[in-house]
Structures are given as structure tokens and as C-alpha cells.
Design a binder for these strands. Structure first.
Length: 286
DNA sequence: CACCCCACCTGCGTGC
DNA sequence: TGCACGCAGGTGGGGT
């Protein structure tokens, strides 16, 4: 479900409600997530006040007044909900943090691919150590991308999905970014010109910004911290549209599978002629 | 090292 | 109606 825009939408909505709140009780519901701190560790949340809420890639970080940090990853179907007193607890609510006055912070996750890990003050968070650059990082430039891609033959779509390079791009936005940039998803990354990387980076920032502004993409599960759906799904140009006409040229949108995941693209708008310059065999090396 | 596959889960839509 | 199957926004471990 949640890629960078969805996580950022949750962060912005939740920060207004949660920062300043103090957790007064913690309830688990037995079923464990794929990764979750021990109950004894999570008990360290009780009595703590939330001082900040930040995002890194698709991870959320709750900062607590004693320096501990709660790392949250929503997996495919995870939600972080801030429930008002009258709201009933939804199904699949795996962690409930009571804030007083009947308000609760709830981690809900149908498929339980999510992660909730509490780290002590000053601890290194390994999940964040390996993450690549944020899309709006000043260090992220076309030349930097070309450097990371040099000599590699993996398809551009897979490169975009690799969070160790750029953090936060998932399967929906990878397809949308490639369409916006006019680049074919199968392009071996080592063959892309600097001009193509420039267009890719511009498309990446534009698409992610638009998605955040629209409140994220809701296909089936995504909801913000109040349970509201996002509206970017109506702006999707290729994702989930296999067989339907391209909104630009009318050519049927194609679906292919790359590294086990669906890619949607327009073979006309994302042709080699529209984008990258092919180089002679072997020329990309070295 | 670079890259791919698959497991980890539940739920939903489709076709027989 | 029921069942089998394929598919779904995530990551990381293990194999090639």
C-alpha cells in the first residue's frame, strides 16, 4: 500500500494530532507482526510523550521525550490511525497506544507485513542505515544517478524500486515516474544518457509531489490517520491500466513482470526514440 | 558483487 | 454455492 507519498500524508496528518500527546497505556492483540519489538521493550512507551514525527523513505519515526524512537513501517496493508474516543477499534488492530481522554494511536495491518520497533536513545537504527537518498536530497543529481548506474545492466524499473539508491519509490510510482519521463522500464541502467537521468529525476520529484498533494493513492487499503482515502488514483496514467488506451496516444497500455512485480507502460510514449540513447555493446562499461 | 526469487500474510475477484 | 487460483502498495534472506 504505502509508498513515500502515502507515508508522508500520514506523517503530516498525524503530527498535528500526536505531537505533545503522552501514552498512558499499551495493548497488544496477540497476533504478531512480521517484525515487532518484544512486549517488554514496547512497555517503555508508557508514560512517554511524543516530541516529533519524521519520515525516512517509507519509514515513520516517532521521537519520544526520553530519546527513544519508535520505528514504524506499514508494509503492504498497514495503517496508523488516530482514533477519537467515539471510534470503535477496527479489525486487525495489532497495537493500541492510549493517549488519554479516550484517544488512541492504533497500528492496524491486515497482512501483518508491517514493522514496529522501539530503539533506545542514541541507538543506531539498521533499517535506516542502508537507505538511499531522499528524492528531494540536494545530493541526488542526474550525475550521481548515472554514477550509481554505471556498468550495470539491471532494468531501470528495478533500479527505481531499489531503496538503497533512492528511498521511498514503490511499485505504483515506479511505473508512473517512468511514464512521465518517457523511458522504457526495461532499459539497462548503464545505457541511460545524462539527459535521460535528468528527465527521470524531474519526473520522480513531480509525480511524488503531486501524489502527496492529492493525499496519496488509494487502490484498496490506503487511508490517512483519520481513515480517509487518498485521491491520486484518478491521476494514475498507467498503473493498473493494462489493455486500456494510453491517455496520451491511445496505444494499449502493456503489463510486464520484472523481478516478480507488475510494470505498466506505454510502448509508444516510452520508446527508445522518446528517451534514451542506445550505446554500442560494451561501451557502457568501464 | 549484482541480481532475482520467494517467503512472509490475508482478502478479493475470476473462472470452473 | 464452493473451491482453486492468481493477484495485491512491502522488505529481506538465500540462491544463482
Amino acid at each position: 500500500m504505502p509508498e513515500l507519498p502515502e507515508v508522508e500524508v500520514i506523517r503530516r496528518g498525524l503530527a498535528r494530532k500526536l505531537v505533545g500527546q503522552t501514552f498512558i497505556a499499551l495493548k497488544g492483540t496477540g497476533q504478531r507482526l512480521r517484525r515487532q519489538s518484544e512486549a517488554a521493550i514496547l512497555a517503555g512507551l508508557v508514560g512517554r510523550q511524543v516530541t516529533g514525527l519524521t519520515r525516512r523513505g517509507k519509514y515513520l519515526l516517532l521521537q519520544l521525550d526520553d530519546g527513544q524512537r519508535l520505528l514504524v513501517h506499514l508494509g503492504m496493508t498497514g495503517r496508523l490511525l488516530f482514533l477519537e474516543p467515539a471510534c470503535e477499534l477496527p479489525a486487525h488492530a495489532h497495537l493500541v497506544l492510549e493517549c488519554g481522554e479516550g484517544q488512541r494511536l492504533v497500528f492496524q495491518d491486515v497482512r501483518r507485513f508491517g514493522q514496529v520497533l522501539l530503539y533506545p536513545a542514541g541507538a543506531v537504527i539498521p533499517e535506516l542505515q542502508q537507505l538511499g537518498l531522499e528524492p528531494w536530497s540536494r545530493r541526488l543529481t542526474p550525475a550521481w544517478l548515472a554514477g550509481r548506474a554505471a556498468g550495470r545492466r539491471r532494468p531501470l524499473k528495478n533500479f527505481l524500486l531499489d531503496g538503497r539508491i533512492i528511498a521511498g519509490i514503490g511499485n505504483i510510482y515506479a511505473s508512473e515516474i517512468l511514464f512521465a519521463a518517457g523511458l522504457p522500464p526495461q532499459t539497462p541502467v548503464g545505457q541511460l544518457s545524462l539527459e535521460a537521468w535528468t528527465r527521470l529525476l524531474q519526473a520522480c520529484r513531480r509525480i511524488l509531489s503531486q501524489a502527496i498533494r492529492a493525499g496519496g493513492t488509494t487502490i484498496a487499503d490506503f487511508a490517512d490517520c483519520e481513515g480517509q482515502a487518498g485521491l491520486f488514483a484518478v491521476q494514475l496514467k498507467v498503473y493498473g491500466r493494462a489493455g486500456e488506451p494510453c491517455l496520451v496516444c491511445g496505444t494499449p497500455i502493456q503489463r510486464l513482470v520484472q523481478a516478480g512485480r507488475s510494470t505498466f507502460w506505454c510502448p509508444c510514449c516510452q520508446s527508445a526514440e522518446a528517451g534514451w540513447q542506445a550505446q554500442p555493446r560494451g561501451a557502457a562499461r568501464g
